[in-house]
């Protein structure tokens, strides 16, 4: 009975994957046909041209250096946002005054356009550290808001139980708070990771950071190289999605280990 239910679930997942794959193939065909109809590479390149350009980029000397440059900065910004956002959420969850004091900063960061921050930060920072700061800034309110929401929705009855049994702070963190924020953290990271890449690359483009993916995108605009623009965009998407999958996998694994310990 159980295996039949499992089989049905597996079949459902396989069916969904096939459906999605078909949708992607159709979208690529639509793109190919549209590009052929327009017939102007400057306006819209074909997916085949993009794939070819992608492979030729792989052989270029500074390809991996460019990727590592942007990856390290954007990922650093993300982890910095994760760390500081979590600490601020813990503080805000513990002390109401901290929540009030953080409120104007969070509202400002959330509502001000990222381009305004990038241009403002260009005055304060070097272009090489700009993407770290911008990624951090975009990740911070998402992590803060979600983790704070998780902390605030902690079951008060469980906390009363720990009060009676005089459970230590560390045990409360492990048994009550971490499982409580699990879903909030996963969804926050999922959103924040995508945003870290988008904003980080935007910062590199506007700041024209030397040796970054953003600089490559900027150059593709200068030289009207649509194939380069598309190829680098594909690389950004792959990096962003790949990194998101790894981080979410690690977070889920951490919680499984925690719950089994």
């Amino acid at each position: 009975m159980i295996s039949t239910t499992q089989d049905k679930l597996d079949n459902k997942h396989t069916k969904r994957r096939i459906e999605k794959l078909v949708a992607v193939v159709i979208a690529l065909l639509v793109w190919q046909v549209a590009a052929m109809l327009i017939g102007e590479h400057l306006l819209l390149v074909t997916p085949i041209t993009v794939v070819k350009r992608l492979f030729s980029l792989l052989t270029e000397a500074d390809f991996f250096r460019t990727i590592i440059y942007s990856f390290l900065r954007i990922v650093s910004g993300f982890f910095l946002g994760l760390l500081i956002g979590s600490l601020m959420a813990i503080l805000a969850g513990r002390f109401h005054i901290a929540k009030i004091m953080f409120w104007p900063y969070m509202v400002t960061i959330k509502s001000v356009p990222v381009a305004s921050f990038i241009i403002l930060c260009l005055i304060w920072l070097t272009s090489s550290s700009l993407s770290i700061f911008i990624s951090f800034l975009m990740v911070l309110p998402i992590i803060y808001t979600n983790i704070l929401q998780g902390i605030e929705s902690t079951d008060q009855k469980l906390l009363e139980m720990t009060q009676v049994y005089r459970v230590s702070w560390l045990k409360k963190l492990k048994y009550i708070y971490l499982p409580q924020i699990k879903t909030y953290l996963i969804s926050a990271c999922s959103v924040a990771l995508g945003l870290a890449w988008k904003s980080g690359i935007a910062a590199e483009v506007i700041g024209v950071s030397f040796g970054s993916i953003g600089e490559k995108l900027y150059e593709s605009k200068i030289y009207y190289s649509t194939a380069d623009l598309f190829a680098w965009t594909v690389i950004i998407v792959l990096l962003s999605v790949g990194f998101e999958k790894i981080v979410l996998f690690l977070i889920k694994r951490f919680f499984i280990r925690l719950e089994r310990s």
């Binding site: 009855k157 469980l158 139980m161 009676v164 049994y165 005089r166 009550i176 499982p179 719950e259």
Partner: peptide, 15 residues
């Protein structure tokens, strides 16, 4: 030092 069984079980669900 007190211990208690509440009306609800108040257990940590995922452990």
């Amino acid at each position: 030092r007190k211990s208690v069984v509440f009306q609800e079980d108040r257990l940590c669900e995922s452990f």
